[in-house]
Nucleic acid binder design. Structure first.
Lengths: 232, 232
DNA sequence: TTCAAACCTTGATGCAGATCAAGGATGCGT
DNA sequence: ACGCATCCTTGATCTGCATCAAGGTTTGAA
């Protein structure tokens, strides 16, 4: 692993307060990987042998049962996934695949659990991380159950608009097929949703989206901080 | 608080390993309440002033936004709710109301956070609790997205059947209106779902359900441990 | 016992979104 | 430039579930 990466990781809330030698122990056991897009990483039901850290790119968490499949969440840098399974030493509840090309860091679960037992600061940091994960699943469940497909797309655009400094034009960071899956709908429906939103302040042009009238968009899709605000 | 309750609480995984004086501190600050059914306890967006423990009865977590409402989870004894909000000192993401008459214990969040800082064993226990909560939300999201309404009802019956020692007859623990909400559908549809399941091994009679052919039921609604098993 | 209220069931209809199908557009290797 | 594959869009149809409406049943109070 490059020293630069090591420093980035060390500064993450999850690792910043732990003892140096414990951090060393984790990093020595860890290894970095670069993975192309659309590669399967883990399959639900498998034992949680590693804790994953997404350094670059994005990973899709999804789940399937008896022929149906659904996307559960998208993980962006820099954050972990399957922390809960790692800590409880239980099988994964979700599968994961790369959405884009990724740089990942894998830390053996055994080491994570060992340091978790030894280093109270690390244990406390894990609490915060898990609480964040928990709240983010709750939020995405609310997003899904309380909104129509068109509203979900609209709110997604609003968040994207915020993240990119409210430039007039935003560019979709994924292919529309992926995006549809992330937003919990089929590609066909995403297409129609974009079409419908053109009556509410946006202008579509391929992957470029012009936010022409943000207020109109917001009026239509009613953003709610208890669903959309990533900090709350 | 009665000594008996105190002992029950002390034995919960969340509290069993913490230091005695820290436990004392929490319990002195806590207070017990008995609440009738269908009473609102907290409203989403409010600050998380207390951590709640359900000692008896059951509590429904739900959420609403712009006129729509949806049930998110049901909390049964003995467990906590809104732990994540308490720890992070952020507003609730869900509202809560009693589903049945309840005995609750309220612990001021400040005290929880203080002990969390002081007692590493408590911090570690919170990790386990949060990981469990996280996994249970993921499971209910999968239940919701990967199954039809009829399948959800069928799997609910299978779980109920297990919990009551696989007696031939099970009794529904809630009114059907409540049950519908818990299972994420309208009362009308729950009725129809019970009707549909009579072709797959059950015989309905009001709140009594006769499990006539468990295998047929299971064949139809395809239980999956990664959704249904509460221990995994 | 009777009446009212709540609960439950059943049928008819409506809507959101999935699925199916086909026709562009775009990109890529040769 | 060509052919081919993938992606994206659009329209038609289908399905699951919600909604609306009405009738039946249970419960509890007077």
């Amino acid at each position: 692993m490059r020293d630069e990466d090591r420093e980035t990781i060390r500064k993450l809330p999850l690792f910043s307060k732990m003892e140096e030698h414990q951090f060393d122990k984790l990093m020595r056991a860890a290894y970095a990987q670069r993975i192309p897009p659309h590669v399967d990483l883990i399959r639900e039901g498998d034992p949680a042998d590693f804790l994953y850290l997404v350094m670059e790119g994005s990973v899709e968490l999804f789940s399937s049962s008896h022929g149906r499949e659904t996307s559960m969440a998208i993980v962006s840098p820099v954050s972990t996934f399957i922390l809960a399974a790692t800590i409880k030493d239980l099988p994964f509840l979700m599968s994961a695949r790369t959405a884009t090309a990724c740089a990942l860091l894998l830390i053996p679960s055994q080491n994570v659990r060992a340091v978790f037992e030894d280093d109270p600061e690390f244990a406390r940091a894990i609490v915060t991380e898990l609480a964040t994960c928990y709240r983010s699943v709750v939020k995405s469940m609310k997003n899904l159950k309380l909104r129509t497909a068109v509203e979900r797309v609209g709110n997604y655009l609003l968040r994207l608009h915020d993240k990119t400094g409210r430039e007039r034009v935003v560019t979709l960071p994924y292919g529309k097929k992926n995006l549809a899956s992330i937003l919990g709908m089929t590609p066909e429906n995403l297409s129609r949703a974009f079409g419908a939103l053109q009556a509410h302040g946006i202008i579509m042009d391929g992957a470029r989206v012009e936010i022409d009238d943000r207020d109109a968009l917001a009026r239509f899709c009613k953003p709610n901080p208890l669903i959309d605000d990533p900090r709350s």
